[in-house]
Amino acid sequence: MTDLMPPTKNKWWKHPDVKKTFIFWLIFTPAIGIFGTQFHVLSMPDPASEVMGGVIGLMRLFTWAASPVAALVFAICATAITSPRHYGDNPPADADHQISNSPRANALWIVISAVMCLFALVVGLIVLQKDGDALHEAGAINVNVTGQQWAWNYDYANGARSEVLYLPVDVPVIFHITSKDVKHSFWVVEMGIKMDANPGYTTEAAVTPNKIGVFNVRCAELCGLLHAYMQNKVHVVSKADYEKWLADRSALEARS
């Protein structure tokens, strides 16, 4: 096969393979970006907190940032697959070139990976910082979460105890989580927070629910026979409803 190599090495971008790859890349990048983000966003539950909204936003951002890279790899694959292919028991003639290295390509690739890496890190650190600050939010309510094989129970400051979480909307809450036996993991699914419950230690997680509704707590660490059933609901209600529930509940608890 006569090679369609441009006359000088410097016009590498005019090579038909380069052009083909570029076109594939232009098609694949938005395709991957759109498919990837939709796949994630449509599967994930509607966010019930800013933290969860942030997680969904992060998925979008990272997917779009990754799509040109993935698209490039797939574009090169597509170019190779759509070039003349040889079948049969014997190999075709050797390829027309001995390109065994390209310091420029290497350098570019490594630099771009490093930049993307740095980008992901910085974005992650920013959000991490915000989540960390939430643990010291003023005006937060405190709820003690106790995990036990195989049920969660919750203790509120005024003495109310419950197997369901009731939370007021738009008020920060800090969970103090521990376990009475083995390791569990306290996952408030729609609010995007999770923290392990360890026996003998108390760990913390914080979130501000921003939507009224009923959500789920699921245990996310295998904790024995009935791990699958270690779940309960979270009711996020208006502040007034919450106060009423809290008062009723602590009265119930105080009965002897």
């Binding site: 195989w150 049920a151 197997e163 369901v164 009923v214 789920n216 699921r218 009935l226 699958a228 059933y229 270690m230 779940q231 309960n232 609901k233």
Partner: peptide, 11 residues
């Protein structure tokens, strides 16, 4: 206890 698909939890 345990979560079925019902809207309310059983406990």
């Amino acid at each position: 206890h345990g979560l079925a698909d019902a809207k309310n939890q059983v406990f």
